[in-house]
């Protein structure tokens, strides 16, 4: 029904879930591909997304604890957002920041989907890795830390982040801390079913064109997350790649 104004009848389920940010995997990919060439479905998605956003305003108002706003300001100061007029996250043309800045319809749906499917422990895990960065070697994260480890942004280093792409499909993301103790963190949460249980490697391509393998980890239960302190300047890392142990590049993130 491309070019017409009405949504395709067989897409209604997917459009609603896409609008709510809960469609995943191949269904999401198929729906997004369709929406980009179908005016009727694109309009339907826009309308449903608007309703989904508006629903959030129905949550009850509640007063936060005393000192809440001071806490925000102090954390903003510590992050440099106030004193140094500097943003905690660096933006570049190709970098994907975790916050939700300029985004296409595709980005919006992908972001919602990431949020819906991304286990929150990865945020805390990245922070835990930052804390460990000055010490030991690679950290394989297999368990979920306690809820209170939701890290304060003030303690979070400046960070580059980019999507991990395979043939145009977002499979996860890569984050690189650019602080004094740089580290790299790779999330894979939408991999090819054929990779299940596969041992994979993380490699980086540096500014001088050289490639280095940082370590290996296993994709278990459809997902894998892995991080390692860097013994090189974060700025030297241009590409982070998910590679099979045989050297086949499975996905890349340009930083």
């Amino acid at each position: 029904m491309t070019g017409e104004q009405r949504p395709c009848p067989d897409r209604h389920d997917a459009l609603a879930e896409l609008a709510l940010g809960t469609l995943a995997g191949q269904e999401r990919s198929d729906a997004l591909t369709h929406v980009e060439r179908c005016v009727g479905c694109a309009r339907e998605l826009a309308e449903l997304s608007g309703v989904a956003d508006d629903l959030l305003t129905l949550a009850p108002l509640a007063s936060p604890p005393v000192g809440f706003e001071l806490g925000v300001v102090e954390r903003a100061r510590a992050a440099g957002a106030v004193a140094a007029h500097r943003l905690p996250l660096r933006h570049s043309r190709r970098a994907w920041a975790f916050g939700h800045d300029r985004e296409t319809l595709h980005d919006r749906a992908a972001r919602h989907d990431r949020a819906a499917r991304r286990p929150g422990w990865r945020l805390a895990a990245a922070a835990a890795l930052a804390a460990a960065a000055a010490g030991a070697g690679a950290v394989l994260l297999t368990s979920r830390p306690a809820p209170r480890q939701l890290s304060p942004a003030a303690a979070r280093p400046a960070m580059l982040a980019s999507r991990l792409l395979h043939a145009g499909r977002v499979l996860g993301d890569v984050r690189v801390s650019v602080g004094p103790t740089p580290w790299l963190f790779m999330n894979v949460d939408d991999h090819d079913p054929g990779w299940r249980g596969q041992l994979v490697a993380c490699e980086v391509t540096l500014a001088d064109g050289s490639t280095r393998r940082l370590g290996t980890f296993r994709l278990a239960d459809g997902r894998g997350s892995w991080g390692v302190p860097l013994d090189m300047p974060a700025a030297a890392v241009r590409v982070a790649s998910l590679v099979s142990v045989h050297g086949t590049v499975l996905a890349t993130a340009r930083l």
């Binding site: 925000v72 954390r75 957002a81 943003l87 905690p88 920041a97 916050g99 939701l150 942004a153």
Partner: peptide, 10 residues
């Protein structure tokens, strides 16, 4: 707090 900090950062 994190939400406000994200908004501030972006």
């Amino acid at each position: 707090q994190e939400a406000f900090l994200r908004a501030w950062a972006h």
